[in-house]
Design a protein around this nucleic acid. Structure first.
Lengths: 125, 125
DNA sequence: CTCCTTATCAGTAATAATTCCTATTACTAT
DNA sequence: ATAGTAATAGGAATTATTACTGATAAGGAG
């Protein structure tokens, strides 16, 4: 995998921010540094970076896929009030019964939905 | 919420099969019984049924949303070999640290990805 | 440093999934 | 029966993502 300028910018953007972005948001952010980058390039590189394990995807009930430069296993919380995605430590999961049946687990995703602390405070007022 | 013929057929189809279907598959299945039902109607009713808690959605790394008539909390396993989605019991999760911070959790989704027992067997041959 | 191969690029067209719109029909309560 | 509301079929529109094409540039060999 060649380390192109475009790929470098996309990866460093995702690594520099502990947040979750969809392809369009990444496109807009990277365009500030590479004005004529195309959306197709963003998608292609995001795909390659995921394949390579440099970043991960977060699938939620929202329509678009979010990309995350923080790749250690963790749980996501989507706030249905403000839409923000929060990171939390994973609780212990062994998935032993599943593995014992002969299933190979390569990837694990947990997404919680609800209302975050901030939005809960606002609602009380 | 009116229990229309269309809504009834969609719901009973999902309840009768312990499997996971996307909107097009449900459309095709229900069309066998209501030939002139429209895809828009299928989507609208799926949305209402989800809102009402009669069915749940499963978001995966595949592009389309899957709908599930089995609403008790459970974990999904997506096989990257055959594409089949399996159901498993949830392990115990308290999410206590998250709740203690003032977050309200309304919904929890865990999706595992890997290779199922059947596909593992086939690969060995 | 220069050449060469080939992955990658920008730009654009195509596809797929989902949502929206409009005229019409069905149900409910008066 | 009538008015008012909710749901429908059918199709158009939107959104997210992928595929295609000729041009460009990354990285290795000499």
């Amino acid at each position: 995998m060649r380390l192109t300028h475009q790929r470098e910018e996309i990866l460093s953007f995702l690594r520099s921010r502990r947040a979750h972005f969809n392809a369009t948001e990444i496109y807009d952010a990277v365009r500030a540094r590479i004005p004529n980058i195309s959306l197709g390039t963003v998608y292609r590189n995001l795909g390659k970076l995921v394949e390579d394990g440099e970043i991960i995807t977060v699938e939620t009930e929202n329509r678009s896929i979010y990309y995350d430069g923080y790749i250690a296993p963790h749980t996501h919380f989507v706030c249905n009030g403000c839409g923000h995605i929060y990171d939390f430590e994973d609780e212990e999961h062994s998935f032993k019964p599943i593995k014992d049946q002969g299933f190979t687990i390569n990837k694990q995703r947990t997404v919680l939905y609800g209302i975050c602390t901030e939005c809960n405070k606002k609602n009380k007022k």
